[in-house]
């Protein structure tokens, strides 16, 4: 079931087409990653989806309701952590949370209880009565996430939630996002961090220059680029690199510290050919590891291809 449907979405700033005819949908209960380099249109799309920037064309539907025609009921069921937003620096962590609770119409008693629970969950309870101008970036980001969860949202929108965070904050946030997702929260996440996308997302859309250039699961995206499969190998003695490179399954050989990093066209065939090569040349294979293509490589390849 689609909970978010984006149709022909465009945003123009004068001559600049920040987002251009974007289409995708997000299924119930999934973590949907929206990846792209800086300036690709991620945040503009995010801001249109959360009712901040008005689209030039197209529409965004959440549970079949148009975000821009009927914004209040939709905003009531979503939580969001905008990249370009801040907590109130002159309010304490607790005051920030209860304010958001009040703005979502959370009953007074539940408001305080929920705020306390979230502050504990995100390890901010000790600092709840400190003004947030004294919070670190990681603490502010965790508080923004607490604010997004104050209304117990059905869908969570996160714009670069982990960028620039310390290891502890990033770990806490990733762990809790997984937990919320397991409890049924649908998550829309923009990021340019492949690790985050790979670790968290069920599906990924890659946007570049305002257009979606790919949309699939992380695994399928990696499969698309088999040429990035890599074998890490070392022999008991020096080999003739030129001869080795002539094997038909091998695309590229690169000398590394105590062996070779080999980019192959097809892993299984490459392993057979390398074993034969070793036998023929009376070599002993000391180490042989295969690597799946990293999402980062896939991403760069897709962006390159799109350009």
């Amino acid at each position: 079931m689609n909970v978010i449907k984006v149709e022909n979405l465009s945003k123009y700033f004068g001559e600049v087409h920040a987002v251009d005819e974007v289409n995708f949908s997000v299924n119930k209960g999934e973590i949907f990653g929206f990846l792209g380099p800086n300036g690709a249109g991620k945040t503009t799309t995010f801001r249109m989806m959360t009712g901040v920037l008005k689209p030039t064309n197209g529409q965004i539907k959440i549970f079949e309701k148009n975000v821009w025609k009927d914004p209040i009921p939709i905003k009531q069921i979503i939580g969001n952590v905008p990249e370009m937003a801040n907590v109130y620096p002159d309010l304490t962590g607790m005051q920030n949370l209860t304010l958001i609770g009040e703005l979502y119409g959370v009953p007074k008693k539940i408001n305080k209880e929920r705020a306390e629970k979230l502050l504990k969950q995100f390890e901010l309870f000790e600092k709840r009565n400190f003004k947030t101008r004294k919070y670190s970036k990681g603490m502010k980001q965790r508080l923004l996430l607490c604010m997004a969860l104050m209304n117990d949202p059905i869908i969570l929108f996160l714009d670069e939630p982990i960028v620039g965070l310390d290891v502890q904050s990033a770990k806490i946030i990733k762990q809790l996002l997984k937990e919320y997702n397991q409890n049924g929260t649908t998550i829309f996440l923009t990021t340019h961090d492949m690790e985050v996308a790979n670790e968290l997302c069920d599906r990924i859309a890659i946007i570049n220059k305002g257009k979606i250039v790919s949309l699939d699961t992380p695994e399928n995206l990696k499969k698309l680029f088999q040429e990035f499969q890599e074998i890490d190998i070392s022999f008991n003695q020096d080999i003739n690199k030129e001869e080795f490179e002539k094997l038909s399954s091998i695309k590229k050989v690169q000398k590394v510290k105590d062996g070779f990093s080999v980019i192959v066209y097809e892993v299984n065939l490459a392993i057979i050919q390398i074993t034969d090569f070793a036998k023929t040349n009376k070599l002993e294979i000391k180490r042989l590891n295969t690597h799946q293509p990293r999402l980062e490589e896939v991403f760069l390849k897709i962006i390159e291809r799109g350009s």
Binding site: R47, T50, G51, V52, P71, I72, P73, K75, Q76, N80, P82, M84, A85, N86, V87, I100, L103, Y104, G105, L144, M147
Partner: peptide, 9 residues
């Protein structure tokens, strides 16, 4: 921006 994403007009 945070305020405008809340369910308020």
């Amino acid at each position: 921006e945070r305020l405008i994403t809340c369910p308020i007009s």
